[in-house]
Design a protein around this nucleic acid. Structure first.
Length: 334
DNA sequence: CCACGAGA
DNA sequence: TCTCGTGGG
């Protein structure tokens, strides 16, 4: 999921403090929701659920993440996916198959009592359905956070909003938004600063990537960067087996892109994908307004409907209210 | 993921 | 005061 650019971007990732991130952040909703759904689980893989068995992991994630963002002076706008381009269909089907298989393996692992495997498979089985989208938007609306509906890919819309200056940066774990032209990408925007990797916990800091640094540092145009992506594989095409980011970069720098595509990926109609990355559908019809959280509405939704603890929710709401009060509601929630 | 309490 | 483990729904 997402273009595998990590190996060529290491030197362009600078860690930044939270204070440098105050301002408007365009959140890649699909990426954030997937993160919440896959990670907010019990050790055996069971997600948070209400008494009726409806998943609530994403609601927990949204609430506390939003509280933290507002506390740190970050005003999020969530950008949701629209209709994917036709050439994404194959990827979508492959992912569905992987997800379904993971669901089966999760059950198998549970029956065997293999908890670690169960957790791993459960994560991969995460699915962002209409219900997740709907309840997420409902909660964000109650929190006073604006949502933008992308005509096509959310990452493209988020990139567009940063290019326009309506947001300072895109928040996503994936690098794809750079391909869509996002001038600034921020990753690892999680509060805890810790992550479990194979049992060990390591510290992670927010990291910022400037597209201009990447292009300058690698001596590439944005089209070239997309060419590298096409060789390693994107959401819209599978790349060349055995070719990673470093090899692909070398190929592009040597001007071997078209020949390599012709020889190794003859069935990929890359011109259309390239055009999509360079000039993706995006809309200007959105309005960004942040409102004070609707405390009672949030409690009705989370506590009355989804069985959240009233005490916990009150505390989270208090932390948001405190910050809002400091700057006066009008200037902050404009 | 995040919050919170226990224990150092 | 900080780290770590656990529960959250």
């Amino acid at each position: 999921m997402g273009v595998a650019f990590r190996d060529i971007l290491t030197e362009f990732r600078d860690t930044v403090g939270w204070e440098a991130l105050a301002g408007v952040a365009a959140v890649d909703a699909h990426n954030a929701l997937y993160q919440f759904l896959s990670i907010i689980r019990q050790p055996d893989g069971t997600p948070l659920m209400d008494q009726e068995g409806r998943t609530t992991s994403h609601l927990s994630g949204i609430l506390f993440r939003t509280a933290n963002f507002l506390e740190k002076g970050i005003r999020p706008v969530w950008v949701f996916d629209g209709t994917p381009p036709d050439f994404k269909q194959e990827t979508i089907e492959v992912r569905r198959a992987i997800r379904d298989r993971a669901g089966e393996r999760w059950q198998d692992a549970l029956e065997r009592g293999d908890i670690a495997e169960a957790y791993k498979q459960a994560r991969s089985s995460s699915r962002i359905d209409e219900n997740v989208i709907g309840t997420s938007q409902e909660l964000l609306s109650l929190l006073g956070i604006p949502c933008v509906q992308a005509p096509s890919e959310g990452e493209a819309q988020a990139a567009h909003m940063v290019e326009k200056g309506d947001a300072g940066y895109v928040v996503s774990q994936d690098y794809d938004t750079l391909l869509f032209g996002a001038p600034v990408l921020v990753r690892n925007l999680a509060v805890s600063g810790k992550r479990k990797v194979r049992g060990r916990t390591i510290s992670v800091y927010p990291e910022r990537i400037l597209l201009s640094d990447v292009l300058k540092g690698l001596a590439l145009t944005r089209s070239d960067l997309v060419r590298v992506a096409l060789l390693v594989g994107t959401d819209f095409n599978s790349g060349i087996k055995g070719v990673g980011a470093k090899t692909a970069l070398r190929m592009v720098q040597r001007g071997e892109f078209e020949q390599t595509m012709r020889e190794r990926l003859p069935d990929t109609e890359w011109e259309a994908i390239m055009e999509f990355f360079l000039a993706p559908p995006a809309t200007d019809s959105y309005s960004l307004h942040w409102n004070a959280p609707d405390r009672e509405g949030i409690i009705r939704m989370l506590c009355d409907r989804f069985d959240f603890s009233q005490e916990r929710i009150q505390k989270a709401l208090d932390s948001m209210g405190a910050k809002a009060g400091q700057k006066t509601l009008d200037s902050w929630f404009s």
